[in-house]
Computed example of a mutant assay.
Amino acid sequence: MVKHCCWGDCRSDDRYRNADHMQDVFFIPFPKPKTQHEKCRLWVSLCGRKNWGVTNVNKHSYICSKHFFGGNGPTIDHPNPLPASGTAIDIKRAQRRARPYPRSRSLPASVIKKYF
């Protein structure tokens, strides 16, 4: 089974382990919801994904080591991932919504008046 990171908008995937951005990256499985429910809920909230909860966590849910303090995975001092906020996906969505004029084949009237 392919491992991919569930944290925010991360695109880490073990299919590309030879790529430059994947050097020294490893995957940490999510805490099990049945045995470590509170820790699992904390990790889900730190991931920053919308419409994704503890019920979505399964044996194929991982976070890559890049999202822990120091990039070395969980430690005794820092056992939880860093929080994801203002991820690139959220920024891209906001930029799409803030277009200066609606997407269409015609130009806005101000542009037409300026050039014609």
Rank of each mutant, 00 (worst) to 15 (best):
M1G: 14
K3F: 07
C5G: 05
C5I: 05
C6T: 10
W7D: 06
G8Q: 06
G8D: 09
G8S: 15
D9C: 13
R11S: 14
R11N: 12
R15E: 15
Y16T: 09
N18L: 11
M22F: 11
Q23G: 07
V25Y: 13
V25L: 07
I28Q: 03
I28L: 07
I28E: 02
P29K: 03
F30V: 10
T35K: 11
H37I: 02
C40Y: 02
C40R: 08
L46Q: 08
N51T: 04
W52Y: 14
G53P: 00
G53H: 05
V54R: 00
N58A: 00
K59R: 09
K59G: 11
H60T: 09
S61M: 03
I63T: 10
C64L: 10
K66L: 13
K66P: 02
K66G: 01
F68C: 14
G70Q: 13
G70M: 15
G71I: 14
G73Y: 06
D77M: 12
H78Y: 15
A84G: 02
A88D: 14
D90I: 00
D90M: 01
K92P: 04
R93A: 05
R99G: 02
R103S: 01
S104T: 03
L107G: 03
V111S: 07
Y115P: 15
Y115K: 13
